[in-house]
């Protein structure tokens, strides 16, 4: 199927539409219409009382180039980039271990990655905040063990934000990596060794290229959310390393500027789409993104 045929509403498409009807309706009501609303909103103006008026303007988009905002985009992209790289560096050996272990604890190890999903991430992030706080267990331990004279300020910097992001998004890196490593044919590794390749050569020439799809999809699934996880930047970064998500959140909350927030959201969506498109161009598998 080289070419996709264009869909037209013909008599034989009607049964198909009925079959996918409930899903279509769901998507229309809860995804398409809200998105459309955001798009429309992004072109609206505000009156003097900060009420939205349906008057077409490009002012919101012009404001996106405000240097303060650009600064935040940059920080956000940096945070997302660091988060992704750290997730790969920790996630790869971890996934490799659980994918290839013959231990009976394999399922348990896998579960340990999944279980945190079942708890609210907000609660877990607050957990980190109290753990790393000035009076938190870590600082108490360090001071009482005389490893530090006074509590160390772990929180409220970019490092803390990245830590929280890595912590929240780690499973999204591990799952696609695990899948791709699990799929790796053991015979190929043996063939490589058989042909005279040492372990590092096998890793670089066979394992990495063949698990690239996992690395890509993991990266996409970590990079994109970390642009938007404002609560992590809020709670652990303390406003010192805001991400694009914070910017948007602020427009809808304290800023009370919905049209600007909508324009920012549209930009975030566009960045996401671009990244996904890029991923697809590189031969990424859409299924492993869960889309």
């Amino acid at each position: 199927m080289a070419k996709m045929t264009k869909h037209r509403l013909r008599s034989n498409t009607l049964p198909a539409v009925t079959m996918v009807g409930p899903v279509t309706l769901w998507l229309a009501f809860f995804v398409a219409i809200p998105l459309l609303y955001v798009l429309v909103m992004s072109f609206c103006s505000l009156d003097s009382g900060y009420n939205v008026v349906f008057e077409f303007t490009l002012a919101n988009y012009k404001r996106l180039f405000d240097p303060n905002y650009v600064q935040i985009y940059m920080t956000s992209i940096l945070v997302a980039f660091l988060t992704t790289v750290i997730c790969i560096l920790i996630g790869y050996p971890f996934s490799f271990l659980i994918a290839r272990t013959t231990s009976k604890y394999k399922a348990l190890l896998y579960m340990l990655v999944i279980i945190p999903f079942w708890t609210n991430s907000l609660i877990r992030i607050y957990g980190w905040r109290s753990f790393l706080g000035a009076n938190g267990p870590l600082n108490n331990f360090l001071t009482s063990a005389h490893l530090a004279d006074h509590p160390i300020q772990f929180l409220f910097n970019r490092g803390a934000t990245v830590l929280g992001m890595v912590y929240c998004l780690f499973p999204f890196m591990v799952l696609p990596l695990y899948t791709s490593i699990e799929k790796l044919d053991k015979n190929l590794l043996e063939a490589s060794a058989d042909l005279g390749a040492r372990k590092t050569s096998t890793f670089l020439r066979v394992i990495i290229p063949l698990t690239m799809s996992g690395i890509f999809s993991g990266s996409i699934m970590v990079f994109i959310p970390s642009l938007g996880y404002f609560f992590v930047a809020d709670i652990l970064g303390g406003g010192n390393s805001d991400v694009i998500g914070n910017l948007i959140e602020r427009q809808f909350q304290s800023g009370n500027n919905w049209p600007l927030g909508a324009a920012l959201s549209i930009i975030l969506i566009l960045i996401t789409l671009l990244l996904v498109k890029f991923y697809q161009k590189l031969g990424g598998d859409m299924d492993s993104l869960g889309v």
Binding site: D185, N187, E190, A191, L195, V206, P209, L210
Partner: peptide, 13 residues
């Protein structure tokens, strides 16, 4: 020694 595998084990990439 070299091996010819049952499943060929050619590097797909």
């Amino acid at each position: 020694v070299n091996t010819v595998f049952q499943s060929y084990a050619l590097f797909p990439h």
